[in-house]
Design a protein around this nucleic acid. Sequence first.
RNA 1: GCCGCCUUAGCUCAACGGUAGAGCAACUGAUUUGUAAUCAGUAGGUUGUCGGUUCAAAUCCGACAGGCGGCUCCA
Length: 594
Amino acid sequence: MAEQIKRKTLDQRAQMSDLERLRHSCAHVMATAVMRLWPDTKLDVGPPTEEGFYYDFDATHRFVPEDFEKIEAEMAKVVAEKQLFQKHVMSRDEALKKIRAMNQPLKEIRLADIPQDEEISFYQNGDFVDLCAGPHIDDTAKVRAFKLLSIAGTYFKGDARNPQLQRLYGTAFPSEKELRIHLTALEEAKKRDHRKLGKELKLFSITPLVGGGLPLLLPKGGVIRRELERFIDEKLDARGYDRVFSPHIGDIQLYKTSGHYPYYKDSMYEPVHIDKDEYLLKPMNCPMHIQMYDSEPRSYRDLPLRLAEFGTVYRYEQSGELNGLTRVRGFTQDDGHIFCTPDQLRDEIKDCIRLVTEVLDVFKLPYQTRVSLSDPKNADKYAGGRELWDRAEAALQEVVDELDIPSTLGVGEAAFYGPKLDFMIKDALGRSWQLCTIQVDYSLPERFNLEYVGSDGQKHRPVMIHRAVFGSIERFMAVLIEHFAGAFPVWLAPEQVRLLPISNDQVAYAEELARQLRAAKIRVTVDHKADKISGKVRNAQLQKVPYMLVVGAKEAADQTVSVRARQHGDQGATPFAVFLERLSREIASRALPS
RNA sequence: GCCGCCUUAGCUCAACGGUAGAGCAACUGAUUUGUAAUCAGUAGGUUGUCGGUUCAAAUCCGACAGGCGGCUCCA
């Protein structure tokens, strides 16, 4: 979102797609309507976004959703008037005069922000004039299908010290049909919302008495988390990781030594006082793992040392930012720290990348990668000398190039201690989440004076890699819930099989099958209720149970089950042993729903 | 944290100045059923909390809490 308010270069503007032009023009049409209805409104900016457009206003009128109809009706008039979008280029002085004559103080500030060498232009449609670099479509009549969606507060230039403006969000498409499809997709997305599904499927709960941003994983959510942990554990065991555990609080000195304290102060909670010392709820695990490295003298023969932990960390989030499982105040990282020699660094990075891609592939989660580098203009944001950074950034970039991973560059996106390779995962709602991350760090080993004895008998400094695959298990679960719309692959499904006896006469048979399934470590329940079979099927479908086994007199007589698959309906009768064999294979292979 | 909106039974919602109602879920009973809702009954609410206006407040006003949509930041 932040990028959208950053100044676009004129080049970028020229490349604006037809759809973006349309939406930007629609924002002007909306502003035109707002100015007609509330003429004393002050204008800020109105760019297109990925989903539509918005326009920010400073208005004495408080916008309410009931205004939408009125504004949309006025917009329809502007469209019907077929006003031409006309560009007027003028000098800075002329522009300033014009803006003052229009009494648009925010625009005056916006004008001052335009670089000296850049052309200054206004766009006019009908009576509406707006300082704007464009580009626009030809005329307002081409704005055909639009809808206003929401009202939001926003700070002028996104800075909390500035006054707050009112933002109206809307969307526009070339045709009514596309608009309808988009609005339907929004409705569908709402049904996938992990907060809604989390409640319906009894996965997690957040209560005011425990506190905001501190989710409780209910038994069914607990199953998913445990399966995810087991999955990662298998991957790590195969790669020679050691499993460690560290406490939830640590001496403030630890975080002062690591350098986290000054950089992370705003995200940490007030210290806890114990005896004469101050302790912090840990905001990250790495300093603890560093202390583990440093618990004994290390030889190059010990390296790489790979320490992994599901470590719960606590970070302050503003109350207005909390959101289900995606933004919380305590979360668990599947954290790992690799200590290695500089020679081993590239191979270790490669192995981390393979680990991440292997895991993401199991879920078929779409992702993009970003090489997140430091911002040279902001040197004080980073710890450690420039030469360390250059080495770290070079190593990361080399591996990315060597593996030919398509990636974008994120200047200024680095952690304070080193550059990162971030994996941005796109969820079913089209939002992008940074989950997996691989970070190269020469800085913390230096701060903690870490050493190992090399084959030359001399002391050397190890390099560190910080890496997390899920990132935050809570956030990863949220993404999975939405990705699968609650219909998890069998290996993750809290309830894998539900037995549905046709009548009471088959309950004993169902219980016997359930016993055998449990013995095979399959999560199973028997529906004893007095419902008709159709009612039982419905309930199981609503809870998104992957397999329903209907058992009646016939099945009980010949040791079969009638298999109903969540996605595919009635599959007919199968010998129970065959079903169990097939199911076990499906679970072991962590297959996706077919 | 800030701006706006919202908060009625476990869930989804109705009542919109005259002291609260439905469906589903729960519980009880009957039914024993063949692939997305069997029937009947019972119970369930100081209408988020506190305060104000009024003869009378779920309804109007205010404060607080929680939720939702955004803003800044991030896993």
